[in-house]
Design a protein around this nucleic acid. Structure first.
Ligand SMILES: [Zn+2]
Ligand SMILES: [Zn+2]
Ligand SMILES: [Zn+2]
Ligand SMILES: [Zn+2]
Lengths: 130, 130
DNA sequence: ATTTTATCGCAACATTGTTGCAAATGATAA
DNA sequence: TTATCATTTGCAACAATGTTGCGATAAAAT
């Protein structure tokens, strides 16, 4: 069985996540890492973190992909059914841990994962009345 | 004011949408068009169609972007609040026009658009018990 | 038919993500 | 501590996707 190692690069990436209130793209992580490691390594670390349920991947309407730390890694069944908010002004993406959509599916579909992203203006940008 | 023109390329793209039951990526459209026009032109046509509320853009968890015809262009207020299903086996993306999520948002957010994509197995792939 | 301007083709570029392979390094046990 | 070995890394090269500038083309209106 494949074990996951704690490398300096991985630790650095996790620290970046720890410091961030919002979800981060590969590029944003790379900028904050200041050449701690190669671009490719970041991709591979992110893959592993997603695989190990430490981070979850968020895909935005505009095609950008971001990542955020999971704060429920302790749960037995690990699913990300919370919503995300994408601000059209500041482009920040945040987890809305308490927003979970309810819906009724037609028969004959097997749903395994959901991706619910809302976009518009975040509280910050709404207050600066843009 | 900018007016939109009906060009042969645009007509060809619309015909491709008309023939398709599922959402299409830029690459899929290009393949079906058989060099009717340049790759860049397809991008520009898609942009215009989205802008004119004739087509809507769907962004998938795996990072792929697809487009589907809107079948409610007549509505006064044009919003895409229906869900989409993305099959992890055949990779087809279909509009679930009747599935609309209900949810409760925290205050101070202004929601303008939602993107609700479910993934798993579509009826076709579920029946071929994979 | 003429005019206007939206659209197109092309080339060049930017960004994002992937792969193969030799070298480096973390974890484990001797 | 040292030896071992599978995991991880860096590098280089590649692939896919999307963007921009600009001169040429063509749709639509007069
Ligand atoms: Zn904002
Ligand atoms: Zn989240
Ligand atoms: Zn399927
Ligand atoms: Zn749809």
């Amino acid at each position: 069985m494949k074990t996951t190692r704690n490398t300096t690069a991985k630790t650095a990436v996790l620290e970046v996540f720890e410091k961030s209130r919002t979800a981060l793209s590969h590029t944003e992580i790379q900028k904050q890492l200041n050449d701690v490691c190669d671009r490719v390594t970041i991709y591979r670390i992110l893959d592993r973190l997603v695989n190990d349920d430490i981070v979850h991947k968020i895909s935005n309407l505009d095609g950008t992909v971001k990542y955020a730390k999971c704060n429920h890694s302790n749960q037995r069944v690990h699913i990300h059914n919370h919503a995300h908010f994408s601000c059209e002004n500041c482009h920040e993406i945040t987890c809305l841990e308490n927003v979970k959509p309810s819906y009724i599916m037609p028969h004959n579909y097997k749903v395994k994962e959901i991706n619910f992203t809302l976009s518009g203006l975040c509280p910050n940008c709404l207050n600066s009345n843009i």
